[in-house]
Amino acid sequence: MTGPALAVRELSVEIAGRDGVASVLDGVGLALARGRMHGLVGETGSGKSMTARSVIGLLPPGGRVTAGSVQLGGRELLGLDADELRELRGAAIGMVFQNPRTALYPLITVETQMANVLKAHLNLDRRGRAARIRERLRLVGVDDVDRIARSYPHELSGGLAQRAVIATALLCDPEVLIADEPTTGLDATIQRQILELIAFLQSELSLSVLIITHDLGIIAQYCDTVSVMHDGRVVEDGEMRRVLLSPQHDYTRRLIAASDLRELRNERAASAGR
């Protein structure tokens, strides 16, 4: 195994707004080891999503990377032109967003939009595409594959829609999957199913997953390593247990204190001791 699947170093990003230029990321670094799940945690506005969007080169209007490096399997991504980046997106890096029901394009069927993604990257014939789409849908745990493929997004439940989104992101077998708050906007029971699905896919396809969340519970349960972000900086990172059990940075401690993690652990300790 050579180096991390995804490495971000000293990444700084600015956004030009109406009231001047604001720095949103300041020297962010993180490493996603191959076949692992890395959590990026922090409160709203800490720069988590901005980090993810810099990686795939989709900063919001006015956004600009001012310094740093992003390497995918050793290949530098910053400085690639628009077409090269476009080819990487969806093929080498898959990305999943929150609110699956709005992420799917509402006016065409699930199958048509998945086929559009396939056409953008792979040279498959019609039958090959149909087979691939059904195989991926089955992989993400869709039973009634044909019916779902022919459905329009508004006909799907939130959970099914997110499965379709994940299947779309994984159509071209990317090595890295970035999941930006993948369970926000879903029912609690569905949230769990989706997280279990991502964990399953990670081991099944030996994916490297970067999961972005504000929920320390998700980090504790699924991640191998974690970075804590605050104010556009990574304040602490490392192996998940180490960070959560003996946080070094004051902000991490406050974050843990504010979460229900401690109660969770106490409960577990209590039940284990009994």
């Binding site: 030009a16 707004g17 009231d19 949103v24 720069g47």
Partner: peptide, 16 residues
């Protein structure tokens, strides 16, 4: 400092 418009993540400031 006021936040720039149209960003999904609010930018960080020194005392955000």
């Amino acid at each position: 400092m006021t936040p720039p418009p149209e960003t999904d993540a609010t930018p960080a400031t020194a005392s955000g």
